[in-house]
Structures are given as structure tokens and as C-alpha cells.
Write a protein that binds this DNA or RNA. Sequence first.
DNA 1: ATCTATTTGCAAGTCATTTGCAATAACAAC
DNA 2: GTTGTTATTGCAAATGACTTGCAAATAGAT
Lengths: 172, 172
Amino acid sequence: MPLIRQARRQGGLALLAKQQGLRLTRQRRLIYSILEAAQTHLNAKQILAEAQKFDPGIDQVTIYRNLAVLKRLRVVDELDLLHLKGDQHYYEARQVRAHSHVACLSCGKVFEFYTPAMKTIDQALEKECGFEVSFTRIEIGGYCAECRKKRGVSPASLKGHKVPRSVEPERI
Amino acid sequence: MPLIRQARRQGGLALLAKQQGLRLTRQRRLIYSILEAAQTHLNAKQILAEAQKFDPGIDQVTIYRNLAVLKRLRVVDELDLLHLKGDQHYYEARQVRAHSHVACLSCGKVFEFYTPAMKTIDQALEKECGFEVSFTRIEIGGYCAECRKKRGVSPASLKGHKVPRSVEPERI
DNA sequence: ATCTATTTGCAAGTCATTTGCAATAACAAC
DNA sequence: GTTGTTATTGCAAATGACTTGCAAATAGAT
Ligand SMILES: [Mn+2]
Ligand SMILES: [Mn+2]
Ligand SMILES: [Zn+2]
Ligand SMILES: [Zn+2]
């Protein structure tokens, strides 16, 4: 059985951890399982809150340390979400299919988006630059369809964020 | 003359600022001109250091406040650079052509990359979701061609960051 | 020159994240 | 199962990026 399949069956972690001299602690399993099960993107504080439901003694620093490990193992991805919600980061278990994160600057909604062009970027980079891509983070800010309807085509003011469409720098 | 052209001739700022009730202070011009002239991505501290060469009295908080304004005006973009260099952000004047930022996890090098697929993503999002894109941040981590050569095809260890290629989760 | 609202500098505060360290626990070897 | 080694944890303290409050300064309109 290919290594990667086996790793997946064990929760994606066991084999990876062993190969690195890492230990599969109760806390590490728990944190990863929380991210695997999560329906939204969680920040470090939210992960702690969820983890303490199962392990009341777990500490915030353990969350941070394990997030670092899980990122290194490429089983967890870190998102910035364009600092829409403060200066913290958000985390999600890595999906089979990569996706980008789109944030509405008006209502704050964040949704995931996939288009084949995303893969094309990685391929272009590998082909043109010989770069080996480990992870790709695509975060897009703008105005969602609903907010555009509410405010006419050009989203007028968001908490004083008035940027007339006509003078936004063009992007080629 | 179209507004956007005129805004560009005036440093991109004057017209935009006026329309928003913003004032073109000495400090604001300086900060923007520093980013316009910069050959690399600068963090808030570096921008302060550079600004103080011309205006010794300028304060760090003025840098932060103006970066917020310039981001809102869409004339400056904020980068995360995948936290390769700590937990700060980096800034650059918005270019005519958008580009992505690629960071080597081995040598720390950061370079810019453009491929038409980037624009395709925005278009797909606008077409499929009716989303109006204001800015797109694409950050990619991996191993550059040079580092790959040095260490064979699979980059071995970076400060204890050993992740065997064979067990990396596949991405479709 | 005058007026008014925006912006600045300074000081203090916030809070996400990191670090030091002794105690605990994985897990490999016996 | 017992033992030994070393990664990991929890707690406390520190770090540092960024924000906020406020009075003084000043951009820009009249
Ligand atoms: Mn960030
Ligand atoms: Mn750039
Ligand atoms: Zn919206
Ligand atoms: Zn490199």
C-alpha cells in the first residue's frame, strides 16, 4: 500500500509523525481531529476552546506548538484571511483539492473558491522557474454578489471605506 | 483626461485623497513615495527607518495609520510572505500588473511571479460568483531551483524541517 | 487670515504568539 | 512490563506587532 494512503487511513498523522521522530500525543491527535472535523476556519483561540471540551487541561501554547508542527507536515494550512478579523491567523486541515479564500469587504463573509486556473499557476511556476511548490495561499478581497446588489453595482461605503470604482488602479 | 490617469500623474494619491476628504500631508506623501521607490518589500519598521531619513520626527504610529489609508485607497498592497520572516506584514506600492509572491522555504528568497492564470482566477470568480475583486494575494511556499539542485531533487532538511516528498498530501 | 476637520506625535494599552524551564509522557529497546 | 531517552507538555513570563486616547499641529476650504 502506498505510504500516502496508509498515512491517510491513520488520520493522516501517524506515519508522517513517526518518520520525523515526532510523537503522537493525545493533544496532537485532538488538535488535528478538531481541524479535520471543522466546518469553518478556526483561529488558535477557537481551537483551544474546542480542545478543552475534550481535554480541559490543554493549554493555548500547546495549540500553537502543534499548529506549527502540523503546518510543517503539510497537513494543516494557515490562512491570513486578509486580516479581515483582526491580526490573528486561521487554520484548516489540508484538503485533497486546494482552494482559495474569498472575503467580502462589506459583509465579512468568507467563502472558498476553486478554479482550475489555480493549478495552472503552480504548474507554470514549476515549469518556468523549476520551483517545487509545497503550498499555495490565494486570498481575494472584494465585494460579494449580495452586497453589490444591495448597494448598486458599485459598493458605496463600508465603515467609511469609500473607494469610487472609477479611480481604482487598473490591474492588467 | 480620465480621472485615473490624472491620479497617476500626481503620484496616484492627490486625486484619490481629495475625493475621500483625506489630506495630503507631508508624512503621507513621504510614506507612499518610499513604497513607490522601494526595490523590495518593506515592513512597517523598515518604512519608519527610511522615512526618518527625510523626516526625523515621524513616528511609527503614523506609518501604521497611513498604511491603513493607502491600503484602503488600493494604492498599497499588504503581503504576509507566509510568515517566513516573523509575524509582521510587508508592503508594496500596487503595480500595474498584479503578481504573486513566491518564497523558498530553504534559502528564504522571495521573488515575484506572473502568469496569465492569475487573471483567470479573478475572472472566474467574477463570472461564476458575481464577486467584484478588489485585490488578490497569492503567496506560494516551496523550494527554489537552486536549493533543489544543492540538495538533490527532494530538499532534505531545513532547520529540522524534514518532510519526505513521498508522503506529502496530494493536491489536485 | 480664519475656521474646521483631519492628522500627527507621544504615551499607554492590547493581544497574538513565543520562549524558558522543570515535569510528564511517547515509544523504542530490553 | 520495565527502563531509558527524548519529545512534548503546562505554566509563567516575555516579546513585539499593532492599536487607542488625547491634546497639539496643520491641510485645505472659504
Ligand atoms: Mn498574517
Ligand atoms: Mn511584490
Ligand atoms: Zn458581502
Ligand atoms: Zn531557495
